[in-house]
Amino acid sequence: MGNTSLTFKLGELEINRLGYGAMQLTGTGVFGEVADRENAKKVLQKAVEHGVNFIDTAEAYGPQFNETLIADALYPYKENIVVATKGGFNRPGPNNWVPNGTPDFIRQNIEGSLQRLKVETIDLWQLHRIDPKVNVEETLAPVVEAVKAGKIRYVGLSEVTIEQIKQVQNILPIVSVQNMYNLANRQWENVLDFTAEEGLAFIPWFPLASGPAKLEDKIKQIAEKHQATVAQIALAWLLKRSANILLIPGTKSIVHLEENMKASEIELSAEEFSSLSN
């Protein structure tokens, strides 16, 4: 991408900014086992072949099936592979997500993730949601313990406000924030800018939403000019938007995966970038 760096330092870890989100490699409603397991393994292996070294998963994906799948596909992990996971959601059924920040549950999540991913240290463990029913200090107590014990290297948060980030930073250091953000939905613009100032990674989930109808024609025109897909332009815009953005587009298709990976080759002009930003 010309002058835009395609790597980001997550603590000591050098991450390629175009990563892979594994959530789609599960059953319907992010529940149960993925329909075609062999294909899912191939997608993960292909992602790594294409230079992906940051893979995002969660205890809640499946639940648990997704982490096991990643280990089956990629273990023993190549030296520079960072597998990031999350904890803090009960999954009573498909599309059903219930925050659970009780210390016992968080502790179980961490221990379970270590086993399923077959690692002694989780490179990045993220709190999937702050549970409004539990004091966040209580929720994070087992995380602080796990960091001290060497079971977690770095900690991140998900779907949080600036105030919540500051509150957690008083309890323990964090390196990343994962909030929803894409061309269509920029409600967390202030959080993105705050993380950039703080030197934290910002990991937009649902990065491929290509935007409101009013943007559609603009994106199509720009995509045609670059001989690219709309999804590639949406990713290229995010890469250009801020140097601390790590992308985790997910897909079940090797063709789409390879398409997404090419987004890093697209250099949007300042004019194209601002026409999509307005």
Rank of each mutant, 00 (worst) to 15 (best):
I106P: 08
S253D: 08
V34L: 05
Q169A: 02
K220C: 11
E138Q: 14
T28C: 14
L74E: 03
L25N: 12
L246V: 00
V143G: 02
A149L: 10
V191W: 01
T26G: 14
D56S: 05
V147K: 06
Q232L: 11
L276N: 07
D193S: 15
P103Y: 14
G199Q: 01
V168T: 12
L6T: 05
P173Q: 07
K151I: 06
I219K: 11
V255H: 00
G21R: 10
L13C: 13
E145W: 05
A213T: 10
E159L: 12
S176W: 01
L235W: 09
F273W: 00
T139F: 09
N16K: 07
T229N: 08
L157W: 04
F105C: 06
S269E: 07
Q45I: 11
Y77M: 04
V144G: 11
E271L: 10
S242K: 10
I110S: 08
A263N: 13
L215Y: 10
L239Q: 06
Q108D: 15
H50Y: 03
R107H: 12
D72G: 06
E145C: 02
T161W: 00
V98S: 13
I152T: 02
A270M: 06
F194N: 00
V82T: 09
N109W: 08
E159K: 08
I70D: 06
K151H: 15
F54N: 00
A263R: 03
G21Y: 01
P63M: 03
R241V: 07
Q126K: 01
A209I: 14
E33D: 08
E163L: 14
L239A: 02
K262F: 14
K41G: 00
G11H: 07
A196C: 12
L192V: 00
P94I: 15
S5I: 15
A22L: 06
L257V: 04
V82Y: 07
I266G: 00
H128S: 13
W125S: 05
E159T: 01
F105Y: 12
N53F: 12
Q24E: 07
L247T: 07
K148L: 08
G32R: 14
T28R: 14
G199M: 02
N179W: 08
Q232Y: 00
I110K: 00
N95T: 06
A231V: 12
P103K: 10
Y77V: 05
E159M: 09
D56P: 11
V83F: 04
N80V: 01
R241K: 09
P173H: 14
Q167F: 11
E38P: 08
G51P: 05
Y77S: 02
L183F: 09
A196F: 01
V134L: 07
E138H: 11
G93D: 13
